[in-house]
Amino acid sequence: MADENPGTPPENADHDGNRRDFLKKSSLLTAVALTPGPVLHAASAEWDEKVAAAFEKVPLKLEVNGVKHKLSVEPRTTLLDLLREQLHLTGTKKGCDYGQCGACTVHVDGERVNSCLRLAVMEDGKKITTIEGLANGDKLHPMQEAFVKHDGFQCGYCTPGQIMSAVACIREGHAGSEGEIKEYMSGNICRCGAYSNIVAAIQDVKNGGQKV
């Protein structure tokens, strides 16, 4: 079904190709289509798995670390869960799932975001970069090198988010001073307390003038 018109986002309920296609196959859902909202909700508990899955998934085109993906996802799937559970890119971490720790930071079209608060369907057509996409083959990104050099982590769990955030911090022009770095890195919690080393790593990369 999603293959018929892959990557076309549903413009609204009446022009949802995914759904229109499905409706051909099922009269059961006609009523649902006419009165969505609460009825849909009430109905959802009654559907069998197959019907529900077909109805509820929408097509999604994403480029992740340079690899193009054509996917079919539930609207409620977050970008973070898509990366970790479906694309098996577990480098992006789940630290709170509420946008309160920064461990899930990735770049969407070059901007750092908390992937736990993004619905994957909202990223249709966008380019995602995760920690797995930062190095150039075997050659680490300068920020990864700097984190190693300055011991910018201990347990390592917040590290991918810190590094993605650190790269963005420089790209955004917010690494002008120690104080500015601290402020603009405050959306990434490190419970082990590697903050000073993280700042040192960012300053090193910034002052080294390497391209990030």
Partner: peptide, 24 residues
């Protein structure tokens, strides 16, 4: 999280229409 419908209108009117009668 419950299942929900997802639509992505490109016109303002379509967006407003989509919500107008649907309190959910």
């Amino acid at each position: 999280m419950n299942q929900f419908q997802y639509v992505r209108p490109t016109k303002q009117k379509a967006a407003i229409d989509a919500l107008a009668k649907d309190t959910s």
